[in-house]
C-alpha cells in the first residue's frame, strides 16, 4: 500500500483559496492598494501602517471567521482522520495569503513612488540606514500581515464568544498605537519607554511635522529601537500565535512538540526583544535639511513653516 500523502498541502491550498476569496480580505486589500496609489502622504516610513491595518487587521478578522466557520460541522470534521492540528496548520499556512498581499502592496507603493514622485529628501528617512529603511518599509508590513491573521486563527480556535475577532483586532490596534506613539511623549530615551516602544507587534519609527496636504515634513523625529531585531521579535510573535492556535486540540506527541516550539519561540522573542531595545537607537533624533541632532522627545516638533 503506498504511503498516504500528507493532507496538509491540499488542505492549505483550500484554506488559502477561501482566504483569498473572502470579501473582507479583498476589501482590505483593495483599500490598501488605493491608499498606496493615491495622494502620497507626508513621510514614507509611516506607510507601513497601511498594509498592517487594511491587510493585517482585516486579515485577523477573516482568519478568525474562517477558523470558526467549521464549528457547525465539528462533529463531522472531528471524525475525519485528519487531526485538528493538521487543519489548524493548514489555516496557518493560508495566512501566507495576506502576507503575500502585503508584499504586493508595499512593492506597488515603491513602484508608484518610483514612477510618479520625486525622490524624498534624505532627512525624511531620519537616522535609519538604507538596510533599516528596507526592513521598515518592506519586511515589517509583511510580518505584521502574517502575524495578525495567525493570531486570528488562534482567536478562532480559543475564543468562542461573539465579537471576539473584532475585540482582539481593536485591542491589537490600541496596543500598537499606545506602544508606538506613547513612549515618545513620556520621554523616549528612558528604559521603560524604550521597552514599551518595542513591546508591541507593531510600532512607529518616526514622528514628523508634516500633515495631510503638506507632502514633505521639515522635521522628522526618529524613534528608539532596532528595526532588524524588532523584525525578529515580531516573527517570534508570529510563531507564538501559530503555536497558540496549534495547541488547541493537540494531543500526546504533537502537543509536546507544539509546547517545545512555543518555548523556543518564546526564548527567541525575549532575546530579540532585549536586543531590539538594547542594540537599537537609545535616544530620539530630529532630522531636517540642516542635519540631525539628538532631541528630547517630550519637546513638541516645530510647526511646519
Amino acid at each position: 500500500m503506498p504511503a498516504a500523502r500528507s493532507p496538509l498541502v491540499p488542505l492549505a491550498w483550500i484554506e488559502a483559496k477561501r482566504f483569498a476569496r473572502h470579501p473582507l480580505f479583498l476589501t482590505g486589500f483593495v483599500l490598501a492598494l488605493v491608499f498606496s496609489g493615491g495622494e502620497y502622504g507626508p513621510a514614507e516610513l509611516d506607510h507601513q501602517f497601511v498594509p498592517a491595518f487594511f491587510v493585517g487587521l482585516f486579515g485577523l478578522v477573516v482568519a478568525a471567521r474562517l477558523t470558526a466557520s467549521t464549528r457547525r460541522s465539528e462533529a463531522v470534521v472531528d471524525a475525519a482522520p485528519v487531526s485538528e492540528t493538521t487543519r489548524t496548520a493548514a489555516l496557518c499556512a493560508a495566512c501566507l495569503v495576506p502576507a503575500a498581499a502585503a508584499l504586493i502592496v508595499v512593492v506597488f507603493f515603491r513602484l508608484v513612488l518610483a514612477i510618479f514622485y520625486d525622490p524624498r529628501p534624505a532627512y525624511s528617512y531620519g537616522v535609519f540606514t538604507t538596510g533599516e529603511r528596507y526592513v521598515i518599509l518592506l519586511v515589517l508590513p509583511v510580518i505584521a500581515c502574517l502575524g495578525a491573521p495567525l493570531l486570528g486563527v488562534a482567536v478562532g480556535r480559543w475564543l468562542r464568544f461573539p465579537g471576539a475577532p473584532l475585540l482582539v483586532a481593536v485591542a491589537l490596534f490600541v496596543w500598537g498605537m499606545l506602544a508606538g506613539y506613547r513612549p515618545s511623549q513620556m520621554g523616549a530615551s528612558t528604559w521603560p519607554a524604550r521597552i514599551l516602544h518595542m513591546l508591541t507587534p507593531y510600532t512607529a519609527w518616526i514622528e514628523h511635522n508634516g500633515s495631510g496636504d503638506l507632502w514633505v515634513p521639515t522635521v522628522v523625529r526618529s524613534l528608539t529601537g532596532s528595526p532588524a531585531w524588532f523584525a525578529v521579535w515580531t516573527l517570534a510573535l508570529c510563531a507564538l500565535a501559530a503555536c497558540a492556535a496549534l495547541l488547541h486540540g493537540a494531543e500526546g506527541r504533537v502537543r509536546r512538540a507544539v509546547v517545545r516550539a512555543s518555548c523556543v519561540a518564546g526564548a527567541v522573542a525575549v532575546t530579540s526583544l532585549t536586543l531590539a531595545v538594547v542594540t537599537g537607537y537609545s535616544v530620539t533624533h530630529d532630522s531636517s535639511s540642516e542635519g540631525t541632532v539628538v532631541s528630547d522627545s517630550r519637546t513638541p516638533l516645530p510647526p511646519h513653516p
Partner: peptide, 15 residues
C-alpha cells in the same frame, strides 16, 4: 448577523 455586521459597521465607521 451580529458577528459579521459588527465587523462591517466598525470598519465603515472607523474608516
Amino acid at each position: 448577523p451580529g458577528d459579521l455586521a459588527s465587523a462591517i459597521a466598525f470598519g465603515l465607521v472607523f474608516l
